[in-house]
Amino acid sequence: MTATNVKVNGAAKSSRFSFKAIIRDAGIGLALIGLIVIFSLSSEHFLAANNITNILTQITINLILAVGLTFVILIAGIDLSVGSVLAFAAVVAGKAITLPGLGPTEAIMLAVMAALLAGTLCGLLNGLISAYWGLPSFIITLGMLNIARGGALHISEAQTIYSFPEQFNDFGSASIFGIPVVFIVALVLVGIAWFVLHKTVFGRMIYGIGNNEEAVRLAGHPVFWYKVAAFTICGLTAGVAAIVYMARLNISSPIAGIGFELNAIAAVIIGGTSLMGGRGSIQGTLLGAFIIGVLANGLILIGLNDFMRQMITGLVIIVAVVLDHYREKYTKV
């Protein structure tokens, strides 16, 4: 043996650079601020009040889906079916809301219940099947993706359902001080999710299962039901998203939500939640949804063509996750 490596200053490896400190502390929020700065410098319309309203409206559905997905991803699962379940719930609710002989209030109430029920049911099935047989949720929810989509097409006979009560549409387009009511609904969901994840036994178990399912099971906790609950919550939020979809567009389309699951998963992952489970936060998911929404909006405002827009969106997802990786690394040691 001859080779010996010489390096005099061992302390040089420690992370004291201010650049690293910034990444460590600000994390994904920094990426969002960066995007906002870039877009406000390059488009006069970006910070206009009505554009901010637009952005908030546009991220609402993705944010609602991402809130539910955060629960599932925290237990190291995945739900690919949320986009299809949204369509299924929207179509079921669309059928309900257009039933003849209902007053507008009854019709809307019935539709809301129908959407929530349909979404919850799909989520419950996802959870029961994957938890009972211990099967990868990736494949079970992929199955559900097809079942729910097929169900939506079947029930609607592949027709767009329309003619909803005006009040429903009013709710979809209402805003308070420029903040869309549907976005406020999403924020309330974020708040509830934060409370549940951080202040309740259930939230503790969600993180515990994601980290070490076996330890939680051996401590006597009903892991099965916690997992089922996580998927059910995800289905429920898809139902809520379906209501927002209907209220915003005043139609139910059986081809609604194609590919939404990927945007929602991206929001959760950009927000720092690990696909391996056990690590992540709902605040991160909120930021992740904002990053995706701001990007989609800003790139159109600065006039980038569709294909460039798609490429840049992909690039930003990767950069955000890489940044988060470094943040994780520096906060650990």
Binding site: S43, H45, R248, S253
Partner: peptide, 21 residues
Amino acid sequence: SRTAHWETEEANTVFSNMLTA
């Protein structure tokens, strides 16, 4: 001129942003 992949919600989002610009 932009695509919305034949889809209602996407057309809504894309066109809102085009209108802002």
